[in-house]
Write a protein that binds this DNA or RNA. Structure first.
Lengths: 214, 214, 214, 214
DNA sequence: GATGAATGAGCGTTCATTCAT
DNA sequence: TATGAATGAACGCTCATTCAT
């Protein structure tokens, strides 16, 4: 008798090759989950709500395509970060200096927020509601996390002499928090001018990082 | 003649003069709630957990002293902000310039975080998990909110010519987010050097706000 | 150690001599209970609601003056029936024939309903929601119950030859039910013409009971 | 596209085509609810009691098959009235005159009471314990209510000259109340002779309605 | 690949009542 | 005579998940 099998027989696991139909269903459920979490908040985004919004008759379909709630949440975060990276990465790659990349990071991130507010809200809800198991960020496998990437950017700027001396991790945490705070503000005030917000943040972090002219 | 009193008879309401014993119990429950929320997260901080941690026999005692969960949460937020203000206010009042107040705000806030991490974590959990009813911040009556107070500080600094021209609200949101991010970092890395963190933030926001020397 | 004492020491029992202040409090609570039951229904007429409406700070005062909920309910029924009897009895006594008494019973009862709708509604709510313990009517000590009194009236009318032969108990139950149904109709349609209703019922039961003229 | 569907996904709704197994479970739960309400009274007929009597492991199964308690109660009333109508309707249709229909209504209704006492008791309990929202009978969609149907019968009898002039609504309310009172009497005295009771009521309402011979 | 049926645990809340002054 | 404080039990309801096709 099977006891501790992680996935039931006949059900697609989170990893490994799914069929095309499988993948389409998964994407549909993930999309529905993103909307639910963004709109209702993490706590109220139950399987029932997600299934209903996805036009699915039974919550069973969710547990069929995902190993459990945790698995679904992981997929939601993965999808949101993937979409953000897909939008921002090309723009960042086109920049030639760390300071230009910093400005582009802020601007393109707020652009992404404008076009994908639900994705962002969902990730923030999840991040706020998921207990970090000791030493493990629940959101990301750590080294590829947004904060780590920013840290790396700041370090590069310091190495090439464009940025002053500061703790790259503190600066990275602060920048991420600043951008995430813009999401909260946008939610509270939907008519917020994100372009102006971006310009403010660019100026703020430009002064905060730039090496003073001699 | 009172007709539609919102609170049930025989139970102390949230407002109005409680007896000493009453107030002590309330404080005990609030303290227990703060610990629970900080430790378990908002979602898992059930009445059962709170009662258990408070050494109370039944959850009924909580509903007896508070009108409902919402009322308890409100009391938790109120208590946490009150404690923070009680710690920071005297120090802020002792400063004579906006820039000095800014540095003091950051430093004293991180000091408070060090000594009252649970209070801070609880408020952040609550803020993250409470849907803001349109136009109404669930956490505070708005005008006295931490962000609004910072906004005022920045405006004063601009008026006296100490700070450069920037959007005071964006700066205020960013500073609050930066400090709150420090709480998250402290949770993930308990050995974090908060003094160093404070120095980094002071330098960061000093440069971000200060009018350039001519 | 006291175990099965029916009433706590120092507390007035339901029977026996209360002081004047005691009686006044009891009356106040009974009045409040009547209003609550009539307005909210039996199920929602909790001690909390009753105490609140009575302007009493604690439900403890109710359990102090009454042995328990059952005792309070009994007092409510007793008071309502007493008030009805006090109103109707003199009018009934003034009648000289059973048929006149029948008409007066109907008319005066609907008059009482008009002036004391809450009393009537409360009794009906209680009657509907109290399980009759085997062989015992929960509402009344039986022999003095409204139905029993009507039964006696019908029997007298038959003995003096005014009423035809019929089962007095069926007729009594039907008349009581007919009058109680008027209360329900009045609740649903507050503008109901009770005088007309009374005339209809008088005609109905006059024909139902009267011995046909030869 | 469905957006605000009231029922949770994955659970069968009260309306619409259920599967056979679904319908059977629903019927089983309804039956258990009828017995519980009839036996314990409305207030004590909790999900726990109903589930226990139905031999169901958890109350969750009830919330699974019904949208909530209100929905279950609605189903109980519907089922009871349906069963009564199914029994009485053919017999009523076979009658050719209003007065014959009146007698048949009384007789067949008491017959139904004899064979389905729990159904009747349950409906009466529900009717007594459900607050009628202003203008809306909680029990029935009004136009098809038992009282309305009787009203129509009396009106027809008046039109064909069989019944005297009286208010049809008062007569209808009185007849329904008279029959319902028989249920109460049967509960208090299980050995009641319902045939005799029916004969008494037939005679009573025959005299109450019939046009006097000239 | 998909589904209906079923489940135990937990939620916040309300209940009448008792304890201790 | 009156009261605040405290209590265990029960309520309807929602949760993610498992069983059996």
């Amino acid at each position: 008798m099977r006891v501790n099998a992680p996935a039931a027989a006949g059900e697609p696991s989170a990893t490994g090759g799914q069929s095309v139909a499988n993948a389409a269903r998964r994407a549909q459920i993930i999309e529905s989950a993103i909307e639910c979490i963004a709109e209702l908040g993490y706590a109220r985004a139950s399987f029932a709500q997600i299934a209903q919004r996805a036009g699915i008759s039974s919550t069973r379909l969710i547990s069929y395509h995902f190993e459990g709630k945790e698995d679904l949440i992981r997929a939601v975060v993965h999808e949101a970060l993937r979409a953000a990276a897909a939008y921002m990465h090309p723009l960042l790659q086109a920049q030639t200096s760390p300071s230009a990349m910093l400005a582009t990071y802020i601007t393109s991130n707020l652009d992404f927020i404008r076009t994908h507010p639900a994705h962002i809200r969902a990730v923030l809800e999840i991040a706020a509601n998921t207990r970090p198991e000791p030493g493990v960020s629940a959101v990301e496998p750590d080294s590829a996390s947004p904060v780590a990437l920013l840290e790396q950017l700041f370090r590069q700027g310091q190495e090439v002499g464009e940025f002053r001396a500061f703790d790259p991790r503190v600066m990275a945490l602060t920048l991420r928090a600043a951008i995430d705070a813009a999401v909260g503000e946008l939610t509270a005030r939907p008519d917020l001018d994100l372009d102006a917000y971006a310009r403010e943040l660019v100026a703020l972090f430009d002064r905060a990082t730039r090496k003073e002219p001699t």
